[in-house]
Amino acid sequence: MEIPRHWRLKQQRYSLVGETCPHCEAKIFPPRDVCPTCGGEAKTQYTFSGKGEVFSYTTIYEAPSGYDETAPYTVALVKLEEGPIITAQLTDLGDQPVEIGMPVEMVTRKLRSENEDRGILIYGYKFRPVLSRAA
């Protein structure tokens, strides 16, 4: 069981809690306590807006073990509006084509279940096309 490894990351996974650098204001995800931009210590919590755009994407047909239940699925490099790029699945695509530059927003979804139907459910961020809203 991999419970501890996932459990301690719940804030990052559920709600994109990262860090902001008190020296250069860079926004950091995943949190790493050392600012990758200026090298200073950066431990101030920062919750990302979850808005971003597709930087690159692909579809996985042959999934690694633990992910076959939802294959095929689309993964993307998502450029967050605060700067960092993160790797995440795209979801709720329906029949919508994906393009580089497509605006997306973060949702919290099931990433996988451990040990098929008996283990814990692992939740985390994914991104979907921005929900269109009537004027």
């Binding site: 996932h6 996974r13 930087f55 690159s56 994407y57 692909t58 996985i60 042959e62 999934a63 690694p64 633990g66 992910y67 939802t70 294959a71 699925y73 993964v75 993307a76 490099l77 790797t87 995440a88 699945q89 580089i100 990433l111 996988r112 692992i122 985390g124 994914k126």
Partner: peptide, 16 residues
């Protein structure tokens, strides 16, 4: 954890 494989990472690079 996002179900990404080395081939998928290469595909992301290749697409870009």
């Amino acid at each position: 954890v996002q179900g990404v494989t080395p081939a998928a990472l290469a595909a992301l690079l290749m697409r870009r």
